[in-house]
Structures are given as structure tokens and as C-alpha cells.
Design a protein around this nucleic acid. Structure first.
Ligand SMILES: [Mn+2]
Ligand SMILES: [Mn+2]
Ligand SMILES: [Zn+2]
Ligand SMILES: [Zn+2]
Lengths: 148, 148
DNA sequence: ATATTATTGAAATTGATTTTCATTTTCGGA
DNA sequence: TCCGAAAATGAAAATCAATTTCAATAATAT
């Protein structure tokens, strides 16, 4: 029975880094379930429990986690990067974005429903590319905004 | 027989704006065939013919053209927006990006090859979204980089 | 416990983009 | 063609996310 953070401590150690209080708090937010945080949103959230946190540390920790493949970083065109804990496939990602309310929905685990692999096979052949991953973005109206 | 730029003059007039020399030069670059310019790249290119141009004017003109749907704006994650003349479908776009050399290839007019519409139909049904457009990004190795 | 070294947070800096503002240009009407 | 109102321009300043610097602090190996 290990306290929370034990696994992360080992991970950081494995990357030649140290586990620290700020890093634990940042991971707490990232793994809380919510997604597509900006760095500042994470900073404000961490600050509620740990007022001493600095925005610089948030940026630095995110950079480490992105490099390690534990967190994915996206640019949705609003001028700030957005981060999410990558509990699933790191190479592939699919977002559906409501043009009206800005809601961002992940559409993972649709391999059974949508044949992305077939699309990639055809694209690879057509363009002579070796395709290793994708980020797909679909724009439209979410269920709520669709119904007025 | 009208001189070049006549059509654009009418367009700008239609948007309640004026046609000017800097705007004509910017459009000249945008429609030259090359693609995925940053604002500064356009600025440097225009400056060769029209040294008086200001970077501010490039940004302002691009904003107008993006709002009008004549130019598409993308963020490829390198910190600067990239612009391209949208001679084809404005709502949908597909890029294949080489992770090694950074080359960006447009994959339009593949509707005959790749069934994007089918993918969208399934996604819409699955998520309850009304999907109006998409930006797809595939990452991999281009033909050159693939072969060492 | 101590020494070493990574990490921290405040402040300064960077770099892309936007805003401000005084001057210049466009363009419709005389 | 000339005028005048309004829009557009470009230089400089401002903004804003993100990065770098640096002296102080915290984490780990011994
Ligand atoms: Mn996501
Ligand atoms: Mn393109
Ligand atoms: Zn919505
Ligand atoms: Zn390449």
C-alpha cells in the first residue's frame, strides 16, 4: 500500500529528475478527469491547494511531461497551448469542436466505428508517406447548440 | 481586358474596404502558388518589390482575408500562424506533415480516393454533432526522409 | 546530517501579434 | 482634375504567452 505519487516519483527518477511537491500537485490536476487545460488554468487550479506555485514551474513541468509522452499538447488556435493527460494512444488523437460554445470533445476508441486505418492506408499509398500518427479536428455544433 | 487586381478591387469594395497597393502586393504573394506562409515570410517577400511595406499591414490584410474566407489560417505548433490562399474548399482541409523535415503537403481532392464523408457520417451519428468542416493532420515521413 | 545538484519562483526577456496614432492614400463627388 | 471625408498605412509602443536568468530552496545520495 503506497501513498499517492509513488508511481510518479519512480517515473521522474527514471527520467533523471526529482519528484517534488509542485510537480505532484500539477499531476493531480492533470489526472483529475477534466481536459484541455491551458497552462494558466492548471496554475490557477494548483494555486488553490498550493498558493506558492509559480506559473514558470507549471510550464517547465508540462514540458517534461510532454517530452516524456505522458501529456499531449495541442493548439486550438486561440493563442494558448492546451494540455491533456495522455492516458490512451499518444500518437493519434481526434477532437470534435463546437464552433458555437467552444466545447472540445475527444473521440477516442472509435476504431470499431470509424475506419481511420483504412483512410491512412490510402493516404500513405497516394502520397508516398509513412504515416505514424494523426490529429483530426472536426468542427460543428454540439448536441446542445444544435438544438438552438 | 482588365489589368491584374481588378477582381480584388471589386472584392474589397464589396467588403466595405478599399483596394490599395500594399494589399495588391500581399495578394500577389498569396496567390503565387507557394503555401503555408508565415506573416513575416509574406512581409519579406512583398518587401522585395515594395520596400515600404509594413509588417503591421501584412497582419491587417491577412486578418481581413481570413475573415472573408479567402485565406485560411493554421497553427502548426511552431509558434507562428501560417496562411494559405483558399482556392478550394474553405471548410475542409487535410495536411500531411513530415516529422523529420517539416514539409507540409496538402491533400485535397482526395474525395475519390478517401472516404472522409463516410467517416464524418459515422462520427456525427456517434457523437450527436452536426459536423460542418474538418482539419485533418497526419504525421509521418515524406518520401525523401523515409528513404534515409 | 551534509554536500551536491536539481528545482523553484520572481523578474526580466523574448517573439509573435495587436494597438495606437500621426501621416498618407483612396475614391466619390464637385 | 481637384477636394474632402474616411479608410489605410507604417513606426513605435503595448500586449500576451512562453522562455530564460538567477539567487534561494528543496530533494537525494552519501
Ligand atoms: Mn483531447
Ligand atoms: Mn494547406
Ligand atoms: Zn456547443
Ligand atoms: Zn521529410
Amino acid at each position: 500500500m503506497r501513498g499517492p505519487g509513488f508511481g510518479w516519483g519512480r517515473m521522474f527518477r527514471g527520467w533523471g529528475r526529482r519528484m517534488t511537491v509542485p510537480r505532484r500537485e500539477i499531476l493531480e490536476v492533470l489526472t483529475s478527469g477534466a481536459k484541455h487545460f491551458s497552462a494558466e488554468e492548471i496554475y490557477l487550479e494548483v494555486r488553490r491547494k498550493y498558493p506558492g506555485i509559480g506559473l514558470t514551474t507549471v510550464y517547465r513541468t508540462l514540458e517534461i511531461l510532454v517530452q516524456a509522452g505522458v501529456v499531449s499538447k495541442f493548439n486550438f488556435g486561440d493563442g494558448r497551448a492546451r494540455y491533456e493527460f495522455a492516458d490512451t494512444d499518444k500518437k493519434n488523437h481526434c477532437h470534435v469542436i463546437c464552433s458555437n460554445c467552444g466545447r472540445i470533445i475527444d473521440c477516442e476508441n472509435l476504431s470499431g466505428e470509424v475506419d481511420f486505418e483504412g483512410v491512412i492506408r490510402k493516404l500513405s499509398k497516394k502520397l508516398g508517406f509513412k504515416i505514424n500518427g494523426y490529429h483530426l479536428r472536426f468542427y460543428g455544433l454540439c448536441e446542445e447548440c444544435k438544438n438552438k
